[in-house]
Write a protein that binds this DNA or RNA. Structure first.
Lengths: 329, 329
DNA sequence: CTGAAAGCGCTTACAG
DNA sequence: CTGAAAGCGCTTACAG
């Protein structure tokens, strides 16, 4: 009675071989996309393996390869690696990798050169434009997937542009006309595409853009936006508010803005609407924001990694996002 | 030339058996503390295994046991799980576990009941006083280690009391006399022990305590302390500052305090010294703080987990911390 | 194209 | 107390 773990008994290749009436060698070849097997047989085996929900044993594979299926997770620049969004991503990545029998191991941005020595593949986070990591990995022959904008090689990203476009449109439909964008320029890779979604919606409605640009920061995003907005209001005077909505690049920035407005008794959303992006658990409570499915991003990264490992052609996957209307708009 | 991974070739039990001139069965028994082997032989084998720096193959063990050595990492309450300190802890835990051939899998605080079904052991983070998790795990027979204050069962924690005591004393030696403590009461498990370190040092110097208590928060710690201090100064008047030093329970709180003082042109550290706790990378730059070795905490957790799995007697390990003097004191 | 067999490192009945 | 052998699930030369 002590142990009642539901044995997640996956079928083994032996079971599949039995059903397909072939040898386990053929099953192994079919499963791994190895040559030397007829297409008919391969299809048959693949179908059966799907039916029995086959999951390979990572342990057995490792035993043979002599080393674990270690996937290096390369973090972005130091200043962004501690952000809630990334933390959530790490967690989901760990789970997704584990389900495929892979083991994650973290590398700081500046440890990229060590990565190929310790891992057989990599997932790159928080890539910037002039990032040297892809070059380093390519030179070492280490397959990788980027979580970020489309570009060379495999990559996944939420549809930032569409998200910001939708949320900006939502504000416009509410009758808001003086809508400002709050974001950091250096805050790669998100701001660029997010900002352009905002721009697109504003242009279509023939409204003029306003930008509250944030400095590159090392500490709290919320504190940064709070202080920035505060300073701005001190100068411009809170009486003739130059905006009736603040579209923020992240939930954290939005929270800082909400706090700053509250502290000046400016009503949200009556006088000023505030929107975020990410829909981070706990943090985004009450916030109108754009939800991105972090678990899906993690799962897709791992799937693409398998494709990369199998030598398939690179592709970019854009994952849908959803508008979440709450109290701040 | 493409692959030049330094094969971290650990010796296998076969190698040990060869050197000891025994069978691999005996080696296995000696290594696993199984009965049915003479003490002399066991010692001999253990010595050799140490000499060759033997590391068991997790893959092989898993293959036999039929399931991976999955360790559930149980996160604290939602509001604290996204803090930088915990992120760092996750990362180090992942690495430490991996080195022992174990695989981490994350569980939210309220998913604890599922943990025993999917993991064979657990590490508990951010435990509160009335936490139900230990009870749930004990009932399920799942061995676990807590990262937190001494109590029942296995646990590890940095020496919070000593750290706060040291940093407070440092300020006292500088001639500061009006030293306030900045911390959140609900901010378990750290505040309690940290606060008492401060109290101890203040009492010894016969100085009176001051407490700037923070509300339970869901967003940014830095923003919270910034606003709290700001509000405090608005009331008390910035001219007759009631303190000449702020001892904060975390680096993040300290950063908010520094920002608030800066925005009022109060000089740090001339007029007011500010200290943190944790020495978080990037965040703590420039901050006088107490460093705790997160990697060591992670490693010790995993070591204790092995002891728990082996049925050894529970113990608490307190890890040393170090004063780091920088620009804010 | 397909299969029988060896072997990855380890544990554990089964003999002695 | 000690050892020879089987077997965990899989991959990969080696034959056919």
């Amino acid at each position: 009675m002590k142990q009642n773990k539901p044995s997640a008994q996956t079928a083994t290749i032996r079971e599949i071989a039995r059903r397909a009436e072939v040898s386990i060698a053929s099953v192994s070849r079919a499963l791994n996309g190895k040559p030397g097997i007829s297409d008919a047989l391969r299809d048959k085996i693949l179908t059966i393996s799907r039916e029995v929900a086959y999951q390979p044993s990572a342990a057995a594979r490792q035993l043979i390869s002599g080393k674990a299926a270690v996937v290096g997770i390369s973090l972005g620049r130091q200043d962004i690696e501690l952000r809630p969004y990334y933390i959530l991503l790490y967690q989901h990545l760990t789970v997704a990798l584990h389900q495929q029998g892979m083991v994650p191991i973290f590398f700081h941005h500046d440890q990229t050169r060590e990565l190929p020595e310790r891992a057989g593949a990599a997932i790159l986070l928080g890539e910037t434009g002039e990032d040297e990591r892809p070059g380093v990995l390519r030179a070492a022959g280490t397959p990788f997937v980027r979580i970020g904008n489309a570009g060379e090689g495999f990559s996944v990203a939420p549809d930032d542009v569409s998200g910001l476009y939708q949320i900006t449109q939502h504000l416009i439909q509410q009758g808001r006309t003086r809508i400002a964008f709050v974001g950091g320029e250096l805050d790669v890779p998100r701001p660029h595409s997010r900002f352009s979604g905002y721009q697109q919606a504003m242009a279509e409605a023939a409204l003029s853009e306003q930008l509250l640009s944030l400095p590159h920061r090392f500490t709290s995003d919320s504190l940064t936006s709070y202080r920035r907005l505060n300073r701005f209001l001190n100068h411009e005077g809170a009486e003739q508010l130059p905006f009736d909505a603040l579209v923020c690049a992240t939930d954290e920035l939005a929270l800082g803005c909400v706090a700053a407005l509250e502290d000046r008794d400016i009503r949200v959303p009556e006088e000023v609407a505030v929107t975020g992006f990410d829909d981070l658990p706990t943090l985004a409570t009450g916030l109108t924001t754009v939800r991105q499915d972090i678990a899906a991003i993690a799962a897709m990264s791992v799937e693409l990694l398998s494709e990369a490992l199998a030598g398939k052609a690179p592709r970019h996957v854009s994952l849908p996002v959803a508008l979440v209307l709450r109290e701040t708009s």
